[in-house]
Design a protein around this nucleic acid. Structure first.
Lengths: 332, 332
DNA sequence: TAAATTTTTGCAACCGGTTGCAAAAATATT
DNA sequence: AATATTTTTGCAACCGGTTGCAAAAATTTA
């Protein structure tokens, strides 16, 4: 059984309040008192119970880290940086895995039961209904890596500039000399896909000489990318594709190779994310780099700010990306 | 502000105990009472505060999920299955990311402050000192995916049978007709590497005609696999290598290809884990499959059992693996 | 040195729940 | 209908902390 404040108080011959105060910064305790208490606490191996404390302070330092992207290597990095980043500022991530069956209200309910101080939604394709549900139970929430859209204007978002990515991709393909290019996005109904699509199309408006086609993979997975590319390969294809993300890209490459064609000789491919795998020589994918560390640091800073000031005016923080050229596009 | 038991009691015109009892299964409440309370609770949107409850019940349903493998895609799947599996039985994962700088005592301390009911260490290469530290603060702990060794005989472990894997690998390589084979493990000082090494060597004892060599990658990463293979390539190599895991294998393949050689024509490679990526056509790695779902289900079941019976006698649960033949070994 | 001011301390109430116990209510037995 | 038994209920104490308030102690000022 863990040692409690009462036992420390007893051993140090002081009141429980005194013990409490020594472990609360900013509280008024004399040096002698503090010394006595610390001594007793160390001898007993005491540490204040944060959960009991939270009852009065109303702060658990628990942050719900919510995602449904547990199959995309990009998000492993996201979890890595979020967990260590949160730990560094004294917050603790309570991981929530939302599957398609999860009831949004249920999930929100659960997070409230655990009195999380805030929620970070780290997902590229979570239905807006989830954020709504969290919002309703009045938990501070930040959306990271997705979901910037008209109906989230009252939410805090930290994300990449998807439109800019779309533009950058189209410009790169055109610069490379491709005259017939394709957009093969992630799921059509998710906001990140829409943003990238808009940016892509925008550039094409001023390039009437370029032919373009559009399609979507069912999800941000290897299998979906492969499947969609196999479908495209049944008809004449574009010369190069900008894919929804890196795993979709790798799936597409696999499909292309399986039909005897090669990348980039026959068809060019570019992705988005710049996951570690994209840099592996066996993959060597040209892609757009997301400044993942910056996004996460910014999200955590914003969370700390919101915890201080819950009614903070919502803001969208957008981070620009940049192209990383590797070997899956060639000059025409 | 969340609605509390007091408000529900007031609205339902009953005592707080009555409300508490309706939300505690097994407690004695009449049907009428329960109905009244449920009605009030629903109208108010009440849910019991688990953290407050934990003060008296001594159960938070929080489970520390501890790992330092945040860079291996295999562990993304591990986190996926653990989080959803724990959720399914009403437990909540508190994710802890241990980096090399983390102080074991500090980490244990933190988990105790949050009164986690138990800890699952999901890691293939965590120094034993960590489990020791957790053990010392008296938190039930299970080691999953690693660390079975002499000094953990007083711990619960759920893992694959590493020795069997080593044997299986050696046998496969021999069966394929290779006569000069290599073991290129993960870090030498971690128990999983040792187990696999032992199994591998054991088979070779009864095959004096086979030449074998041994080396180790620095970590379970692409970069380490690549580096170690580049080193090996400076001298005459074996005909095929059994690598520490899949990412090491893929790094090794990359190294081999970068010197103009090819896999499996010039050098054969096999891994262990069977991560999703291994099945991607562009990788197509022959490997040993870990029954990850079974290990995780078993770990969770064991955790539930331990929570019921804290002094349960420690056990090691070992799961056999099986070979998945793909394209990185050929018949000699 | 006495009075005024500031700092430190403990008391007691509270945070949001649970639970042993005894009284009250409902049900069963005679 | 009276009594015995069982079930339901509320009281009050407790879980491990924090905190407003007033008294006590220490320090400053006159």
């Amino acid at each position: 059984m863990a040692v409690t404040i009462k036992e420390v108080a007893l051993r140090a011959q002081v009141s429980r309040s005194a013990v409490s105060r020594t472990f609360t910064d900013g509280a008024s305790v004399s040096t002698k008192m503090r010394k006595k208490v610390i001594k007793a606490a160390n001898e007993l191996g005491y540490a204040p119970n944060i959960l009991a404390r939270s009852l009065t302070t109303r702060r658990t330092k628990l942050i719900g880290l919510v995602s449904n992207n547990f199959d995309n290597p990009f998000f492993l990095k996201v979890f890595d940086l979020f967990t260590s980043g949160l730990q560094d500022v004294g917050l603790r991530p309570l991981l929530v895995n939302l599957t398609s069956e999860t009831d949004p209200a249920q999930a929100a309910h659960m997070l409230r039961q655990y009195s999380v101080d805030g929620v970070i939604v780290a997902s590229s394709e979570l239905p807006a209904i989830f954020s709504k549900a969290f919002k309703e139970v009045n938990i501070p929430i930040i959306e990271s890596f997705g979901m910037i859209s008209e109906d989230t204007s009252d939410m805090h978002c930290v994300s990449i500039d998807n439109k800019q990515c779309g533009r950058m991709a189209a410009r790169l393909l055109i610069k490379k000399g491709y005259t017939n290019i394709g957009f093969m996005g992630g799921p059509e109904n998710v906001s990140v896909s829409r943003g990238r699509f808009e940016g892509f199309k925008e550039v094409l408006k001023s390039h009437p000489e370029i032919q373009a086609s559009y399609s979507y993979a069912e999800s941000h997975t290897f299998a979906a990318g492969r499947k969609e590319m196999l479908r495209l390969l049944k008809s004449p294809t574009a010369q190069a594709y900008y894919c929804g993300d890196d795993v979709i890209s790798i799936g597409a490459i696999s499909a292309i190779q399986s039909t005897g064609l090669s990348v980039p000789e026959d068809i060019g491919i570019m992705g988005l994310d710049d996951i570690e795998i994209a840099g592996w020589e066996n993959i060597n994918l040209t892609t757009i780099h997301q400044p993942i560390q910056q996004i996460i640091s910014s999200t955590i800073e914003l969370m700390e700010a919101i915890l201080e000031e819950p009614d903070r005016y919502p803001e969208n923080r957008l981070f620009p990306c940049y192209v990383v050229e590797r070997g899956t596009l060639k000059n025409q």
